[in-house]
Write a protein that binds this DNA or RNA. Structure first.
Lengths: 181, 181
DNA sequence: AACGTCATGTAACTGGTTACATGATTTG
DNA sequence: CAAATCATGTAACCAGTTACATGACGTT
């Protein structure tokens, strides 16, 4: 389906950027729901240039470091807009190795299971704290309450979804641990 | 990481089964968190036989249909037990194309966004209904309340997680729609 | 001068999907 | 007897990760 293609087009619609910047964007809140390594990004950028969906200008940073600033072409914008409105089927399998282990809980003894779940609970709680901190910072930067036309609305929605997802996971882990006594 | 390998070992630990049965297992609740197509399963089974983690006996179904019933070897059981206790880092990026679109909501107009969200809300609600129906059936089969030693405990935990995950997603969609007025 | 970050690329491999291909069995 | 399901396999391709490789820039 080439989703990375659209991830790149979407990022470039927001701003001109380099391949490195795109990789950096995947390290933020967006990365909770989509990401790619630079080794996948650079070849994809070359492909998109050939397809004329993006173009680049070479910029000199400092003395001689060349970097490529990519931007959307009209054709690229059109393809992005087409994809963004497209209704896709909800993907069934969101792979989660911990849930796979959970399915096989009958192969564990009670202590093992409790340790595994406690451990997961701990990791998830630490992850939640980090996400909540990012939200606090995002809200602090905002003057007015966030609404549809705020430039940070997309970022805000994705962050709140990531946070609620972790909270849901944590609650389920706690309830499951309680079920094991 | 060869997670499919462990998915297969885990399923075979529960019962002897064919490649077809394994594919069928991925269509149930387990498939919400892990799955594979038969075209990936059959070569993996062959590989696991070579590695001596599983073995098979050929069974004749009806007149002449040969099917291969796979089962765990002692070595396979040992590897499964090793994996099941192993603590892995929480995977960051759980890919979700809808959330990627959400991140780019600034590229949509309000009506477009509302339609996309309403649509997703609808799909998720239908999915939730199906999952809740499966849970109802599972609970009906149970005589005593489900607890750690119930043979269906793993199935139950995975199902409840899938249900709560959908509920969380739905709530977020509703709250997001409300934020758009 | 050393270290961390910015910046770009390729090669080899692994994981996963789509499509091709075949045939037996069961159920309506 | 037709259609759905059971059952097994391969080939080609696409997506994604790990490792290899290089070098400039900014800060301490």
């Amino acid at each position: 389906m080439r989703v990375l293609k659209f991830a790149i087009l979407g990022l470039l619609e927001q701003d001109k950027m380099t391949g490195y910047d795109i990789a950096a964007a995947f390290k933020g809140a967006l990365g909770q729901f989509w990401s790619a390594k630079h080794s996948q990004i650079y070849p994809e950028l070359k492909k998109l240039v050939v397809e004329e969906l993006i173009a680049f200008e070479t910029v000199i940073q400092g003395e001689k470091l060349e970097k490529k600033l990519y931007s959307l072409t009209a054709k690229g914008t059109a393809e992005l807009m087409d994809w963004i409105q497209r209704v896709e089927a909800v993907n069934v399998s969101n792979k989660d190795e911990f849930m796979l282990k959970t399915y096989f809980i009958a192969a564990m003894d009670k202590q093992e299971a409790q340790q595994l779940f406690s451990n997961q609970l701990n990791s998830r709680q630490r992850k939640l704290e980090k996400l909540e901190q990012i939200l606090t910072e995002l809200e602090a930067e905002q003057k007015a309450p966030i609404h549809f036309s705020s430039p940070e609305f997309g970022h805000y929605l994705v962050l709140t979804r990531a946070i609620e997802r972790e909270k849901g996971y944590i609650q389920w882990l706690e309830r499951s641990l309680a079920l094991m006594e």
